[in-house]
Amino acid sequence: MFMKYCYPFAALFLLISACNSKDEKRLPILGNREAVQKTVNGKTVTDTVYQTIPSFSFVNQDSTIVTDKDFDGKIYAADFFFTSCPSICPVMQRNMLKVYEKFKNNPEVKIASHTIDYKHDTPSILKAYANKLGVEGNQWEFLRGSRDSVYTLAEKNYLVAVSEDKNSPGGYVHQGWFILVDKEKRLRGAYDGTQPDQVEKMMDDMDILLDEYKDEKK
């Protein structure tokens, strides 16, 4: 008797749980985290503090100063490249171009490409590069900063390895990650920017992330 009803119930249970998980699809929060004890209304509460991108200030392709404030209220994808890069950069930027085309003119989405060739990639060179790539306006920022500021941000905050290497083609080595950052500047995804299927996944994840904020508004 019990066995007879067991399967339909199990099926129903699975169906319901499947529905739930679809509604609550959220991206994980990546990076380091720590538990912090706070006092709220006289009570001690433990809260989780996630790793965030700290404040920064760079110069973009229009020679304008761009800071973390310009990314407030936006989700964004970040990568590290240099214009004269003969290895993985063209693939990465070819893939990032798809992201740009998909979210073009979406005020909630930005892209940040940090050059790691601080000597050669001046704003005018970045501008010419952006134009030739077919990028207009400043939704996609090509950012230049001092060696230390960019390299520290890459390794400590975006968790992407970059370095100078005279023996490698082009003079620099770096990883091809695309890092997805949310409106709270937390890391929400890391994707191999040289793999088209990974970039597809990032674009799907960006939709999921944007939906999270829609749900919060309701």
């Binding site: 003969p86 290895s87 993985i88 063209p90 693939v91 930027q93 070819r94 171009l97 590069y129 134009n131 030739k132 790539l133 077919g134």
Partner: peptide, 15 residues
């Protein structure tokens, strides 16, 4: 292939 792409079409006005 990285620059000129698998289909030989290059990259925009860059390559």
């Amino acid at each position: 292939q990285n620059c000129h792409n698998a289909d030989g079409k290059g990259l925009q006005a860059l390559i």
